[in-house]
């Protein structure tokens, strides 16, 4: 089954069609977003790190929630994805460290999650499942043949999203 694992790095997006798995490891405060169109078995996984792209000249579009999601939708749509039937799932956005007396630190996960939801709402795409927050890293994978999304965390059984 796992003969075709496509790895998605930090600030990157990969997609495939028909068979195979797209996987991203150890999402901390980052967020993984999967889009899956079951009718044509087209699925992609985006791994964003920060909420907004502040410099329009920055070519790393997939690093940011805003530019990343727009670009992902544009790309997948070019390959036939239809928004209305696409299943959206998100995971990540953890707070890995808590510094006493500095509540601002490490809120990036929360800000990422808020921005991802805002952009998806603007794009009129509903999130069908999410696993965000907490204080632990997650590995997220999407099986493109079945549309199944799995979340792996340390010390807990694999979870189907």
């Amino acid at each position: 089954m796992a003969e075709r694992d496509i790895k998605v790095g930090i600030g990157d997006m990969k997609f495939t069609r028909g068979t195979g798995t797209v996987i991203t490891y150890a999402l901390g405060s980052c967020i993984g977003i999967t889009l899956y169109d079951p009718a044509i078995k087209l699925g992609g996984l985006l791994h964003i790190m920060l909420p907004t792209r502040t410099d329009p000249g920055d070519t790393k579009v997939f690093k940011y929630a805003d530019s990343g999601i727009h670009e992902m939708i544009r790309k997948l749509s070019a390959f036939g994805m239809v928004k209305s039937r696409t299943i959206v799932k998100i995971a990540g956005g953890a707070k890995m460290f808590d510094i006493k007396g500095n509540t601002d630190f490490g809120n990036i996960g929360q800000r990422n999650a808020a921005m991802v939801k805002k952009i998806l709402m603007e794009e009129k795409m509903r999130i069908s499942a999410e696993d965000t927050g907490g204080a632990y890293a997650r590995t997220m994978l999407l099986n493109v043949a079945t549309g199944e999304v799995l979340i792996r965390t340390v010390g807990k059984p694999e979870k189907r999203l």
């Binding site: 490891y25 901390g28 980052c30 790190m49 890995m96 890293a137 590995t139 340390v154």
Partner: peptide
């Protein structure tokens, strides 16, 4: 935690 997750901080 997972090493990869820690380094994303």
């Amino acid at each position: 935690n997972m090493l990869g997750g820690i380094l994303t901080v």
